[in-house]
């Protein structure tokens, strides 16, 4: 394998909602220590793929392998110590403080006999520090802005101390400022903390600026995988999203930016 080891992989996944197939024969290797972004039009199956990787659902055929073994055949807590998730819409019970929410990320490390330890305290403190949420650790969730709340749930996933993290559209419903805030944080996880991150993103240009590699889905299949973001062409985007675009270059980062062509829809 040219890339570093791949602890997580999808093997010929099939999944349907009733009679409608959502994923058809999806295989994917997730390389270690990099930020993989799943891209594709609505209904392409990217969120479904993420939920199968997070074992929120069982594929009708195929398997998700973690260290070579089907995740549905491993103890649920053992998997929870390997894979963390930021769901699209976590519930945020009123009256719960940020510190309490983040502390719940330690659940898979505890047991009936294993009480709260110094290691748990350290993990929570570090998660709060990395996400910049320490300052409002004692505030309740209903007192936070959308961006702060999102960072709090990212802190929960970090406190779980899993080598692999999955994010499902982490920037949706956020203002630009908070989108940047959250994306900067997510991009720092592989870079500074050696985590393996897979995220579904809606915003093409955020994907271009932050991803290490891109996985495109279309109609329930993997359309293409780009190991270099700079390799992404206008033709590629036009084919996946069925919309004409022009490619530009970000003046600062030099990474590609895609702009829609007005009045040019087919």
């Amino acid at each position: 394998m040219p890339l570093s080891a791949s602890p997580l992989s999808a093997q010929a996944l099939q999944f349907s909602h009733g009679a409608t197939p959502v994923l058809r024969d999806v295989s994917l290797l997730v390389p270690d220590g990099r930020l993989t972004v799943l891209l594709g039009p609505n209904g392409s199956g990217k969120s479904t793929l993420l939920s199968l990787l997070a074992r929120l659902a069982k594929p009708s055929q195929g398997a998700v392998l973690l260290h070579g073994q089907d995740i549905h055949q491993q103890p649920t807590r053992a998997v929870a110590r390997q894979i963390g998730l930021l769901p699209q819409t976590p519930l945020s019970p009123d009256g719960m403080t940020v510190a309490e929410v983040v502390a719940r990320g330690r659940y898979p490390h505890q047991g009936l006999l294993k009480r709260w330890s110094a290691a748990d305290d350290a993990a929570v403190a570090q998660a709060l520090a990395v996400t910049g949420t320490s300052a409002f650790a004692d505030r309740t969730l209903d007192q936070l802005s959308g961006g702060q709340r999102q960072r709090c749930f990212i802190a929960l996933a970090l406190a779980q101390e899993t080598p692999i993290l999955l994010f499902d559209e982490p920037t949706s419903y956020l203002d630009l400022r908070y989108q940047v805030e959250v994306m900067e944080l997510i991009a720092s996880l592989p870079r500074d903390h050696g985590r393996t991150v897979i995220t579904v993103l809606h915003d093409l240009n955020f994907a271009m600026q932050y991803a290490d590699r891109l996985v495109f889905l279309k109609q329930g299949r993997i359309h293409s995988v780009l190991e270099q973001v700079t390799a992404c062409s206008a033709a590629q985007i036009e084919e996946v999203f069925e919309t004409p675009v022009v490619r530009a270059t970000h003046p600062q980062s030099g990474l590609p930016v895609f702009l829609p062509v007005s009045g040019g829809s087919r």
Binding site: L56, A80, P90
Partner: peptide, 14 residues
């Protein structure tokens, strides 16, 4: 406690 955060998060926490 974990279930209060929703089904998805509860599952991913084991």
């Amino acid at each position: 406690n974990v279930l209060a955060l929703g089904d998805a998060l509860a599952t991913s926490l084991g």
